[in-house]
Design a protein around this nucleic acid. Structure first.
Lengths: 231, 231
DNA sequence: ATCGCCTCAAAGATATGACGTATTCAAGTG
DNA sequence: CACTTGAATACGTCATATCTTTGAGGCGAT
C-alpha cells in the first residue's frame, strides 16, 4: 500500500513535516539541500517531489525551488495526506471535516447497500455486528476497531458505487485515528453497537430507509462525541 | 493546474489510454519501450510513471515491468482520473457514480452553506442565480455552464468544509462533461433554474433545511435526466 | 515425477556528470 | 524613472554506469 524504495522514505519524512505545518506554507526547499539532508541522489529527490506535487502539497519552479503550497490546494482526499494530517497539528480540524463528509456519505451508502448488497455481504454485516457486540464487552479495543472498520468498509463497498467504496480507506483512517488518539470512550457505547446491528438487519431486510436512518444516527453520535472531546 | 513539462506530455498520453481501457488491466509496459515510443529519457518516463503510480493506475515492479492495476484500485477521486474517464469508454458509469456522490454531498453542503456562508458568498449566489436565468433564456450554453459551475462551487466552498470545497473541481468536471457530450437538454430546464434561485434565497435567508431540499431536487433532477439519456 | 534449491539474467532503482532552459534580480542605459 | 539586457541560479532533461530485486529455468535429491 505504501510507496516503496528510497522515494518512499523521503515521502515519509517530508509528507508529515509539511502536513503537520512544521514546514509552513510558502516555505521553499531546494532539491540539492534535500539530496544532502537525506543522502540520496537527485533521481530519488525528484521522484519524491513529483509525488508531493501530485498531491499539490508542493510546487516546483525553476530558479525558485520547491514551494510548499497553501493548504487549500492540498489534495485532501488522498489517504496519505489524511493520515499525515491526523498525525499532526490540525488533527481536530481534519476529524471535523471528515465527520461532515461521513455524515453525508455513509447514510446514503447504507441506503444503497440495502438495495444492492450481495447475499454474502449481508451475511458478513450480520456477522460483524455480532463480533462488535462481543468485543465491545471484552473491551478489546484493537479487534473492536478492526471489525468496526470492516463493517463500515463493507457497507460502503456494498453500495455498488465505486466512489463510496473508495471512501472506505478514508473512513478506516478516521476510525483508526480516533482510537489511536483516544478520542472515543474506552468502552464502546452499547447504544452505538445496537445501531450497528440495526444497520445490518436493515440491509439484510432490504429496508433502505431504515438502514440510512440508523447509519445517520451512528455518524451523528460519533461527531457529537468528537465535539465533546475537542470542546 | 496541469502537470508541466515532458512528464506532463507522457501523462496526457498514457493516462487517457489507461483510463479509457485502451490499455487493459493487467497489461504490462516496459520503461525502455516508453522511452523509445515517446523519444524521452529514462528520467522523464520514471517521473510520469511515478505519478500514475500515485494514482494507483499502474504499479512498477522489478523484473516484471509497469503493470496496469485493476480499476477498483484506481484513485477515483483524482480530478485527472475523472476527466480521463469521462473522455473515454466508461463515461456513463463514471457519471452515475458521480451523480450518487453529488446526491449525498451537495444537499449537505447547501445546508452548511446556509449556516456558514459569508455575506459575500450569499450575494454571489444570488447574482449567479440571476445570471443563470438570463443565459438560459439566451440558450448560451458556454456561459451558462460557466455560471452553473461557479454556483455549485460557491455553495461547496461556502459550506466551510475543506473536503466539500475540494469536490468543487469534481462537480465542475461532471457539469463540463455532461455539456460537452450533449447529455443534457439543449435548453436548460426552467424548473432547474428556479431551484437554483431557491437555493440562493434559502442560503441568503439562512434556511438550511430549505437549501438542502432545493439542492437535493436539483441533483435528483440531473441524475434522472442522465438515466433517461443513457437508458 | 515432484519438490526444493541454486544460478542467471531481465528489468526496474539509484547514482552521477553534463548540459539545457526558464526565471529572477540587478546593473546599466536612455 | 522606466526599460532593456545580461548573468546567475535552480530546476529540467539526457546519457550512462552500476546496483538490487525477482522471476524462471535448470539441476539434483528424494
Amino acid at each position: 500500500m505504501e510507496i516503496q524504495g528510497l522515494p518512499g522514505r523521503l515521502l515519509a519524512e517530508l509528507g508529515p513535516a509539511i502536513a503537520s505545518g512544521e514546514v509552513p506554507e510558502g516555505a521553499v526547499l531546494r532539491a540539492e539541500e534535500l539530496e544532502e539532508r537525506f543522502g540520496v541522489s537527485r533521481t530519488v529527490v525528484r521522484e519524491a517531489v513529483r509525488i508531493l506535487e501530485g498531491m499539490h502539497l508542493v510546487a516546483s519552479r525553476r530558479r525558485v525551488g520547491i514551494t510548499v503550497q497553501p493548504r487549500s490546494d492540498w489534495d485532501v482526499f488522498d489517504p496519505l495526506v489524511i493520515r499525515w494530517r491526523l498525525a499532526g497539528a490540525d488533527r481536530s480540524a481534519q476529524l471535523r471535516s471528515l465527520g461532515s463528509l461521513r455524515l453525508a456519505v455513509e447514510p446514503a451508502a447504507a441506503a444503497l447497500a440495502a438495495r444492492h448488497a450481495t447475499d454474502d455481504e449481508r451475511r458478513r454485516l450480520s456477522a460483524l455486528a455480532v463480533e462488535l457486540t462481543m468485543t465491545a464487552r471484552a473491551a478489546d479495543l484493537a479487534t473492536f476497531l478492526r471489525h468496526d472498520i470492516d463493517f463500515h468498509t463493507t457497507v460502503l463497498r456494498a453500495s455498488r458505487n465505486e466512489m463510496f467504496a473508495h471512501l472506505g480507506e478514508t473512513v478506516g483512517a478516521v476510525l483508526t485515528g480516533r482510537t489511536e488518539y483516544h478520542l472515543m470512550p474506552h468502552q464502546p457505547e452499547p447504544y452505538a453497537i445496537r445501531l450497528h446491528r440495526e444497520v445490518a438487519e436493515a440491509v439484510c431486510a432490504g429496508e433502505a430507509e431504515r438502514a440510512e436512518q440508523a447509519m445517520r444516527t451512528i455518524v451523528e453520535g460519533a461527531l457529537a462525541e468528537l465535539n465533546e472531546q475537542l470542546g
